[in-house]
């Protein structure tokens, strides 16, 4: 055993402080944003969109990044959440928001469970096709299930309410989405640090070793799909409130790809990465509204650009910088010692 060959890279405490500082900054900016831009409804709506998309991207990252499964149909789950929330609000307009949210989440979780059952045995391309099928089928079902979904026109989403407080203004919707997303991220972060989260990642890295350590691989995958769907459902409900409307056209296949792109651009298996990836792509997307038809080109361009420069996604930027700096430091040390050697 030579301890010298396995020195631990230092600065873990510093990295942790930096992490907390970053989280603090994000929360402060999130809380203060409407205070500064509250009059600019467009800005607030875009910011809300960033928040909702970030949550949905995280729900997909659970599946793709942490669980090693592929999904091309996350928009389908988002649609289920959106329709569930809109439908229950239509029936019971005074329903408290948390109940409405729970209803949407539970219904989407059931859909995720059903999706997870066969996918416990499927992987790779096969899984991609099955999830793609789900993503394409859900809007079609919504289109034809007119008694519940009102067909092509869709459902108007009534404002959420808590007691007598109606969350109807853009700023109210913003805060509603912000709080729900923050709580969801805390829950996910917490879950990932426990044996359930470790089981997700263990199955991702080696199914055989995971089984040898007592992990029921198939059940773990189904759980993963259910958890991902739960948060996609929450995101879907918020998505409905953000749009004021859920209709089949709001959940195209390209939306699923958008979330997948956000996961990859942000960096797989990184919660901050998903937040940054979602924000970046939403902002890129809003810049293209003057160029109708070019949205996918711009979003695709951003994806390619980021991956060319940082293959690990934006979450890998600090590590990449650190590696560059240490390499530079080493080079400097080497040239320094050479110089002093020459001086002798």
């Amino acid at each position: 055993m030579s301890p010298a060959s396995r020195t631990v890279p230092g600065g873990r405490a510093a990295a942790r402080i930096a992490q907390w500082a970053m989280v603090g900054a994000v929360v402060v900016i999130g809380v203060l944003f409407p205070q500064v831009y509250g009059q600019d409804f467009y800005a607030v709506t875009i910011a809300t969109e960033c928040i909702v998309y970030a949550l949905i991207t995280i729900s997909l990252n659970l599946l793709v990044g942490y669980g090693g499964q592929i999904s091309l149909g996350q928009a389908g789950l988002v649609a289920i959440g959106g329709y569930a929330g809109a439908y229950i609000l239509e029936k019971v307009p005074s329903l408290p928001f948390p109940v409405e949210l729970a209803f949407a989440a539970v219904l989407t979780t059931i859909a995720g469970l059903i999706l997870g059952l066969p996918t416990g045995r499927l992987r790779g391309h096969y899984l991609a096709v099955v999830t793609l099928g789900l993503g394409v089928a859900i809007p079609q079902i919504a289109l034809n299930l007119t008694s519940i979904t009102n067909g092509r026109t869709g459902l108007i989403v009534n404002p959420a309410s808590i007691g007598s407080l109606a969350l109807a203004s853009p700023v109210a919707i913003y805060y509603m989405c912000f709080v729900v997303t923050c709580l969801s991220v805390i829950a996910i972060h917490s879950l990932l640090k426990t044996r359930t989260g470790r089981a997700f990642m263990a199955v991702r890295d080696s199914e055989q070793a995971a089984a040898a350590m007592g992990i029921n691989v198939q059940r773990t995958k189904i759980t993963l799909f259910a958890v991902s769907a739960f948060f996609a459902g929450i995101g879907g409900d918020l998505f409905g409130h953000l749009q004021n409307l859920v209709a089949p056209g709001a959940f195209p296949f390209s939306l699923s790809l958008f979330f997948l792109a956000a996961v990859i651009v942000g960096g797989s298996a990184s919660l901050p990465g998903s937040v940054i990836g979602a924000i970046l792509l939403v902002l890129a997307d809003t810049q293209t509204t003057s160029l109708p038809g070019f949205e996918p080109v711009v979003v695709g361009g951003v994806v390619v650009l980021v991956l060319l420069i940082i293959p690990g996604g934006l979450a890998a930027v600090p590590a990449t910088l650190m590696r560059l700096r240490s390499r530079q430091g080493r080079r400097r040390a080497r040239t320094g010692s050479l110089a002093s050697g020459a001086g002798d």
Binding site: L191, T194, R195, R198, M213
Partner: peptide, 15 residues
Amino acid sequence: VGADHLGRTGLLRNT
């Protein structure tokens, strides 16, 4: 992960 099979807490309690 090696020790995790000894745990009894599920999804909800872990979250």
